[in-house]
C-alpha cells in the first residue's frame, strides 16, 4: 500500500532536517520502539513491539536513511523480522519545503508485510500503515514544536532512553 500526506511543522527546515537524522528523535517517533542504536551513516538497529490486527510481535530490524539531499529530501526505510509472526517493511520518502520559517514536510509512505502478518493481517494493513505513519510524524512534530521557553528537562536533554518526552524537547535541546 502507499499513502501520501503532508504537515506543517513550526520549525525551520534546517532544524527539521537535523531532527530526522537524530537517533533519539527517531526512537521517540517510531511507534512501539523499545530500543534504537546506531547512527545515520551506519544505519540504526531497532527493536519495535507492535500489534497488527490479531498478531502481536517483537520486531528486530534495521532503520536506514538513504537518498540524503540535505536539507530537502531523504528516504527512511525500516524492516523488521517478527519470528513466527513474519516480517514488516516500510519506508517514507520525505521532502521538506521552507515556508516562511516553517517547514512543510511531505511524505509518501509504503508498507509491506509478510508471513503470518500477511496471512492474518492483510485486510487491515492499509489502516495500520496509515496509523503508524500518522503517529510517527505526530511524534516527530511534537519533538520539534511546543513551548520553547520551557527549561529543558535534564533527563531528556541527556538523551535518556526512557520516559515520555515533552513537546518541543528536540527544539529545546538544539537551541540550548
Amino acid at each position: 500500500m502507499e499513502l501520501s500526506d503532508s504537515r506543517t511543522i513550526d520549525a525551520p527546515r534546517e532544524m527539521v532536517w537535523q531532527a530526522l537524522l537524530d537517533k533519539d528523535v527517531l526512537k521517540n517517533a517510531v511507534p512501539g520502539c523499545q530500543e534504537m542504536s546506531g547512527s545515520p551513516e551506519e544505519g540504526f538497529e531497532a527493536v519495535v513491539v507492535q500489534k497488527v490486527g490479531p498478531v502481536k510481535a517483537t520486531f528486530k530490524g534495521a532503520v536506514t536513511l538513504e537518498d540524503m539531499n540535505e536539507p530537502e529530501s531523504l528516504t527512511i526505510s525500516g524492516s523488521g523480522k517478527g519470528g513466527a509472526a513474519g516480517f514488516a517493511k516500510g519506508g517514507a520518502k520525505v521532502r521538506l519545503e521552507d515556508d516562511n520559517g516553517q517547514t512543510v514536510l511531505h511524505y509518501d509512505v509504503e508498507a509491506k508485510v509478510g508471513g503470518k502478518l500477511a496471512q492474518l493481517g492483510s485486510r487491515i494493513i492499509d489502516g495500520f500503515a496509515k496509523k503508524m505513519a500518522d503517529q510517527f510524524f505526530t511524534n516527530f512534530q511534537e519533538a520539534l514544536e511546543g513551548p520553547a521557553e520551557q527549561e529543558p528537562d535534564a533527563e531528556v536533554a541527556d538523551g535518556a532512553e526512557t520516559g515520555e518526552k515533552k513537546k518541543g524537547w528536540f527544539r529545546r535541546m538544539v537551541s540550548s
Binding site: 509491506k112 508485510v113 509478510g114 508471513g115 503470518k116 500477511a118 496471512q119 492474518l120 492483510s122 485486510r123
Partner: peptide
C-alpha cells in the same frame, strides 16, 4: 496472493 507472493487469504477470517 499479493504482488510480493504473500498469501493474503491465509485464514478463515480471510
Amino acid at each position: 496472493y499479493d504482488d510480493q507472493g504473500q498469501l493474503l487469504s491465509g485464514s478463515y477470517m480471510d
